[in-house]
Design a protein around this nucleic acid. Structure first.
Lengths: 185, 185
DNA sequence: GTCTATAGAGGGATAGAC
DNA sequence: GTCTATCCCTCTATAGAC
């Protein structure tokens, strides 16, 4: 064959990266296939060599993005220290994260779209979320409820902040939630 | 004129109601003007008599839907009792709410879309959210941080639950957050 | 105020050349 | 594996009849 399978895999990953950034900024449904492939230096026809449909790509996107987010909490063998966890949470709840969706977590932007996607996408999402909650639970002395609570709170706060126009209002949500999750000692 | 202004106002409200239900189920951007007007027994041309553009409707939708959600917390003069508030929160974090987005709160579905909307929409959203937080704050003995935390948590939890496929997983998020917000005494 | 018809742009997906 | 070209559908918005 004229192209190595390495080349194909690399192109697929590049496409996923670029499409992920676009989808996190503009939404997945409202980003056309054309725009995604163009970002990766390709044209429309090439898309369907890598993905069977646009929905297939959403599934792959969720898996890749969620794996990247999980990596922020260290791997299972070397868990984060408490102070490191607090720092990661503070970064999540920062103005920088609110203002640069393309570089951040996929959950505030993509979750509502996944909710309307087909079963395959929602299966992948469910699995990823459960892994993330389990990891958080480990880092929180096994407090499962608190892990769910912190996850929901962080995603909700960033999404709400992004939907508000003014910086002061954005800071109010972020700081309120931050103080609630990470109380001063 | 052949139609009273009452008729026009009533049509506009009916259109907003139907469009709101559709948008909460399928998303606003992915619901066409055609589908919205059809739901209200009209055709496309009529839409632009009531709204200058689709974006104008999103603004009106946010205002109407958020006002309806606010009404769930009683009016400013007769605040909810603690037990009533707890009951409202439990209903928000219920499987029924997750399974019937069209009848519920607009925040889990529309917030991510508002985040990508123009300034006018985001201004309306910000104002509505701040009113809602202020109301919650009143009901929580003035604990502003807790009001933000509960708001973000509730919206985040319902949205996450909707994006998961299985009922057990959905219950896990909802119940975890519910126990965290409304601790057993 | 509402309808029909249509303009004009953009969407997802496929076929065939290279 | 990628490109160009194209099909067919849906979208927002407008024009003109009633």
């Amino acid at each position: 064959m004229r192209y190595s399978s390495d080349h194909k895999a690399a192109t697929r990953e590049r496409l996923l990266d670029k499409a992920g950034a676009l989808a996190k900024r503009q939404g997945f449904a409202s980003t056309g296939v054309d725009a995604m492939v163009a970002e990766a230096g390709l044209t429309a026809g090439a898309f369907y060599v890598h993905f069977g449909s646009k929905s297939d790509m959403l599934k792959a996107l969720v898996e890749k993005e969620m794996a990247a987010s999980m990596a922020m909490f260290g791997d299972a063998d070397s868990p984060l220290a408490d102070a490191e966890l607090a720092q990661r949470i503070a970064a999540y709840l920062s103005i920088a994260h609110v203002e640069h969706p393309e570089a951040g977590c996929c959950l505030p932007t993509l979750t509502a779209e996944v909710a309307r996607a087909d079963d395959g996408v929602r299966d992948s999402f469910e699995q990823a979320i459960q892994q993330m909650q389990a990891r958080l639970c480990l880092l929180m002395d096994g407090d499962s409820d608190r892990a769910w609570s912190v996850l929901a709170q962080a995603v909700g706060a960033v999404m709400l902040a992004r939907a508000m126009r003014g910086k002061p209002a954005r800071k109010a949500v972020l700081d309120g939630v931050k103080r609630q999750i990470l109380p001063k000692r």
